[in-house]
């Protein structure tokens, strides 16, 4: 059973879709965030597909549009790391009322980093990230050093118009946008505050991934049989921009199906622990 709901806090109106198991038995609750700038269904409805598989395993699932995203209030230009942290907390506090001990979060790109921080909350049992941003802060600094902090239309930050093959975009900047979970076709006409990039230059931002003992990170990796690998906090290391280029989400239904299956399995394993 699915339903829509508004979560209202601090004059922000966040739209969510909740999935409730038909059996009415709830083994746990999961909050899902899409890639940065995308609506809650994400690319190829990835997060919706994930929510459906989790609910079949008797998990309560909440897909949420962060502030400035999808059907929620605000515009993308108003989104900061702080607003994303607030939105994560709003969703997680809601889930805490649904299930006391088995609360999980799943995010893609930058949202995975936000959830790595949220995992420090005692009631969070686990967090899963799909290609979280794990780039050397100096690389980010160098990439945007000529851009003053401010609000820009994305098409001005990263000019280009070949959306099908992306040949006329700067490869590194495009890879960076993909790393945060954005898709050029979706973000190019929106405004963004580059304060977010500045905040990601902070050493501590990536460090959270390394110390997040409750975290499990999935990274695209063509050398693995399934096309991705899992990494835990102790194993995580910086990746290159090229590691994200056209790889932040693989647009192959079988890749997505297998990844979703593995995410569900790892959550259910922790539920049963």
């Amino acid at each position: 059973m699915i339903t829509q709901k508004w979560l209202v806090k601090n004059n922000k109106y966040l739209l969510g879709v909740s999935h409730y198991p038909d059996s009415r038995i709830i083994k746990g609750a999961v909050l899902i965030f899409p890639g940065f700038s995308l609506p809650m269904c994400d690319v190829d409805y990835f997060t919706t597909k994930l929510a459906r598989r989790l609910v079949k395993k008797e998990m309560y699932v909440l897909q949420l549009d962060p502030f400035g995203h999808g059907d929620s209030s605000g515009s993308l230009s108003e989104v900061t790391l702080e607003s994303l942290r607030d939105d994560a907390l709003t969703g997680l506090e809601y889930l805490q009322k649904i299930h006391k001990s088995n609360v999980f979060c799943v995010g893609r790109g930058l949202m995975a980093n936000i959830f790595a921080e949220a995992a420090e909350l005692p009631f969070i049992k686990g967090t899963i990230g799909i290609n979280p941003v794990c780039i050397d802060p100096d690389v980010i600094k160098k990439l945007w050093e000529k851009t003053e902090v401010g609000v820009y239309e994305c098409s001005k930050l990263l000019p280009g118009s070949e959306y099908s093959n992306l040949t006329d975009f700067s490869r590194d900047k495009l890879a960076f946008f993909e790393a945060i979970g954005a898709r050029m076709r979706n973000i190019h006409g929106q405004y963004i505050n580059t304060e977010i990039f500045k905040a990601m230059e902070d050493e501590g931002f990536m460090e959270v991934l390394k110390r997040c003992g409750k975290g499990l990170w999935f990274f695209t990796d063509g050398t693995c049989a399934k096309g991705y690998k899992t990494v835990t906090a102790g194993e995580i290391g910086c990746r290159t921009l090229d590691d994200y280029y056209k790889k932040a989400i693989v647009r192959n239904p079988l890749w997505q199906f297998n990844l979703i299956e593995d995410i569900c399995e790892s959550i259910m394993k922790r539920v049963e622990d």
């Binding site: 609506p39 269904c41 190829d44 409805y45 999808g70 059907d71 993308l76 076709r185 979706n186 973000i187 190019h188 006409g189 929106q190």
Partner: peptide
């Protein structure tokens, strides 16, 4: 074909 109710760049919103 494979859009959504928000659509690219939140144009529907």
């Amino acid at each position: 074909l494979n859009g959504n109710r928000v659509d690219n760049n939140r144009i529907s919103v």
